[in-house]
C-alpha cells in the first residue's frame, strides 16, 4: 500500500504538489504585462500561479489593456444574447469601456473613467457614478476580485483550450456552500476572460458566458476617440437622506456577504413603502425587502424562479420578507428567518 502511494507521488497525477516546482519555469514563460509596476505589486501579495494571482491578473488586464471581445450570454429558457465588449485607455490615461447588446433594439453602456452612461430603448439616456458597468457579468468580478476571496474557495483546475486559445481554468466555490459557484477560464497570455459558467450546488449549469472573439491591440479602438465626453447624459442624482437606524436586524449572512445598501422604497405597482436592503459578496447581489404589518392576507411562504433569479417570500412574525437574487432558496430561507427586531 505504501509503495503504491509512493509511486503515486512520484507520478504526475498529483498536479497540486507540482505547482510549486512548476512555478519557476512557468513564470519565465509568461509575457510581460503592459503595466509591470502595478501588476507586480498587486500579484506579489499572493503565491505565484495561485488562483488569487490569476484573478488579480485578470482584473489588471481588463483595466489596462486595449481589447475588443465578443461574447454570448446563455440562460435556460431565454434566447442567446450576443455582446460586444471593448475597453481602451486613451493617451491621457482615461479608461473607456463599452458594453453593447448586439441583438434587437440594443442596449449600450459606456463608461468613461467613473461615469457610466446607459443608452436603452424607451428610456431617456442617463448616467451613474460608478467604476463598473451593470451588465451580464457578476457586478464587481473584474474590478474588485479580491472581494471574492473572503466568501469563496478558489481552486486551480487545469489548463485547457477555449475560444481557440490556451486557457487556465479556475473554480470558485462558496466556502459555506450557500451560494452558486463559478467556473472561469482565463486566457493564459493576457489573463482576460474566455468563458464563465455559473452552476448550482448540484453542479448543474445555470448561466454561461462564452467569448467568441478576443483581440488585444496596441492602440485603443478608434471608436473611443469619436466619443464626445461633454455630450454624454447627465448623472442621475441620488439624494442622501438623513441616517436612520432600521429596527430590524439580519442575524444570518452567508460567509463573505455584506450589506451594501439600506433604504426605504416605494414600490411602483402597489405603492407600498418597504425597507430595501442590498446584500453583496462581490459575485452576486441580492435584494431583500422587509414589510411590516401587511394588511391583506396574501402572505405565506412562496418559492419561485425568474430566469436565474430565485424569488423567496416568507411571513416571519409581523414581517413579510421577500428575497430576490441568484442564490439557492435554502440560503434565502436562512437569511429571511434570521431577521429580528433590534435588541
Amino acid at each position: 500500500m505504501l509503495k503504491v502511494l509512493q509511486n503515486k507521488l512520484n507520478g504526475r497525477a498529483l498536479l497540486a504538489l507540482l505547482f510549486f516546482v512548476n512555478v519557476s519555469t512557468h513564470l519565465h514563460a509568461q509575457p510581460e504585462p503592459l503595466n509591470p509596476q502595478l501588476t507586480q505589486e498587486e500579484i506579489e501579495q499572493y503565491p505565484v500561479d495561485s488562483a488569487q494571482a490569476w484573478l488579480t491578473k485578470m482584473s489588471q488586464a481588463s483595466r489596462s489593456l486595449n481589447f475588443s471581445i465578443t461574447f454570448v450570454l446563455l440562460k435556460p429558457g431565454v434566447d442567446s444574447q450576443p455582446y460586444l465588449w471593448r475597453h481602451g485607455v486613451t493617451a491621457e490615461g482615461i479608461e473607456m469601456e463599452e458594453l453593447n447588446l448586439l441583438n434587437g433594439a440594443g442596449k449600450k453602456a459606456l463608461r468613461v473613467d467613473k461615469k457610466v452612461s446607459y443608452f436603452e430603448p424607451n428610456v431617456p439616456p442617463y448616467s451613474l457614478v460608478s467604476t463598473t458597468i451593470n451588465g451580464p457579468f457578476p457586478s464587481q468580478f473584474f474590478r474588485y476580485p479580491e472581494k471574492l476571496f473572503v466568501g469563496y474557495d478558489l481552486v486551480m483546475v487545469g489548463k485547457s483550450r477555449v475560444s481557440g486559445r490556451a486557457a487556465q481554468q479556475i473554480r470558485i466555490i462558496s466556502k459555506d456552500k450557500s451560494r452558486y459557484g463559478l467556473n472561469v477560464w482565463l486566457d493564459q497570455e493576457t489573463g482576460l476572460l474566455l468563458k464563465m459558467n455559473m452552476f448550482n450546488l448540484k453542479n448543474q449549469l445555470l448561466e454561461q458566458i462564452q467569448v467568441t472573439g478576443l483581440q488585444v491591440t496596441e492602440q485603443p479602438d478608434p471608436f473611443f476617440s469619436k466619443i464626445e465626453i461633454g455630450m454624454l447624459p447627465e448623472v442621475v442624482n441620488i439624494e442622501q437622506n438623513k441616517k436612520i437606524r432600521s429596527p430590524w436586524q439580519i442575524g444570518y449572512l452567508p460567509v463573505g456577504m455584506e450589506l451594501v445598501n439600506r433604504k426605504l422604497r416605494r414600490l411602483s405597482i402597489t405603492s407600498e413603502v418597504v425597507e430595501y436592503v442590498m446584500l453583496s459578496d462581490g459575485l452576486v447581489d441580492i435584494s431583500l425587502y422587509i414589510q411590516e404589518n401587511v394588511k391583506s392576507k396574501t402572505t405565506g411562504r412562496l418559492v419561485g424562479a425568474n430566469q436565474t433569479d430565485t424569488l423567496f417570500t416568507i411571513q416571519n412574525g409581523p414581517l413579510n420578507i421577500t428575497i430576490i437574487g441568484k442564490i439557492p432558496a435554502a440560503t434565502a430561507n436562512a437569511i429571511a428567518t434570521s431577521i429580528q427586531r433590534q435588541p
Binding site: L267, S287, Y289, L302, T313
Partner: peptide, 8 residues
C-alpha cells in the same frame, strides 16, 4: 406584489 418586487 411579486411583480412589484421583481420590477423593483
Amino acid at each position: 406584489r411579486i411583480q412589484a418586487y421583481l420590477i423593483d
